[in-house]
């Protein structure tokens, strides 16, 4: 390999960006709850969100400014989503769906901020939603709310969810297991969809970026070929912005649809 300026940067492996690094070691007894880069980006995302909302709602202006408009648009977007999917009873779930949507949206977007080269790994950009345990926790929280509220609201009528009305009795033994399996797979699909999208997107980005480094490092004519993966990385970045917003929306709307089941299970 020729000595080339850029080749001093060792292209990081595509998995390195997902590694969780301790920043401040902490523990509850045997439980390791260290403040990690993941925790740091959660704190950054939530703090940024809260600061934005603090700033946006400080004026309570009748004619909203720019930031207040954004806050109101987000509010009404999620509010309409909840109302259209669940109906008027959905109001009580609105804060949850809104927090979920904002949390995922901000996590996804902040994960797209480029890391500064040469920084220690702990300070690299980290996408908290690219970890299955995080998305699974959020999905399980949604399903837990669905189950608890479903039984609270409908009693055992909630179980009608698994036995759609108007079906001939002989179909029940076939259909009920299918419904149960589909219900149980909900948190998995909800969690894996978000995680896999973030994960795959960031791997592809890092692979393209790695190609650029490798090709430039090769020197001579081959260096020029580096433009191709570079353009690819730009295109994927743009796609990832779409995916970041879309997956937050998908998570929110599926949460609403599942909550709707809990609210209206007894009506079937």
């Amino acid at each position: 390999m020729m000595e080339y300026g850029v080749s001093n940067f060792k292209a990081a492996g595509p998995m390195e960006q997902f590694e969780v690094t301790r920043i401040v070691p902490l523990s509850f007894g045997d439980l390791d709850v260290s403040f990690t880069n993941s925790a740091m980006w959660m704190v950054i995302g939530v703090s940024a969100t809260l600061l934005f909302f603090l700033f946006a709602t400080r004026g309570r202006a009748l004619i909203p400014g720019r930031s207040q408009s954004i806050a109101e648009v987000l509010y009404e977007f999620v509010f309409d989503l909840v109302r259209d999917t669940i109906g008027p009873e959905g109001r009580k779930f609105f804060p949850y769906v809104f927090s979920l949507f904002i949390f995922i949206l901000v996590a996804n977007f902040f994960g797209l901020i480029p890391s500064l080269p040469g920084m220690p790994h702990a300070l690299h950009t980290f996408t908290t939603t690219s970890h299955l345990i995080v998305t699974l926790a959020l999905a399980m929280l949604t399903i837990a709310i669905v189950v608890v509220y479903g039984f609270y609201k409908n009693g055992f009528g909630f179980l009608k969810l698994f036995a759609p009305s108007g079906l001939p009795l002989w179909l029940m033994p076939l259909l009920v297991p299918i419904e149960v399996i589909s219900f149980l797979s909900r948190p998995i699909s909800l969690a894996v969809r978000l995680f896999a999208n973030m994960f795959a997107g960031h791997i592809i980005l890092k692979l393209f970026a790695g190609f650029v480094i490798s090709l430039i490092g090769a020197g001579g004519f081959i260096s020029l070929l580096g433009i191709a993966p570079f353009l690819g990385a730009v295109a994927v970045t743009m796609l990832e912005f779409l995916v970041a917003a879309l997956q937050a929306y998908v998570f929110a709307i599926l949460t609403c649809i599942y909550l709707n089941d809990a609210v209206h299970a007894g009506d079937h």
Binding site: M42, R60, Y75, I133
Partner: peptide, 29 residues
Amino acid sequence: PSQLFWLTVTFGALFALMATHFLPRIGGM
């Protein structure tokens, strides 16, 4: 455990402040 702990802390804080403060405020506006 660390991820779940910090997710609980951050998401909990976000939810608590959104539900009690910011969302009613925006709704009010």
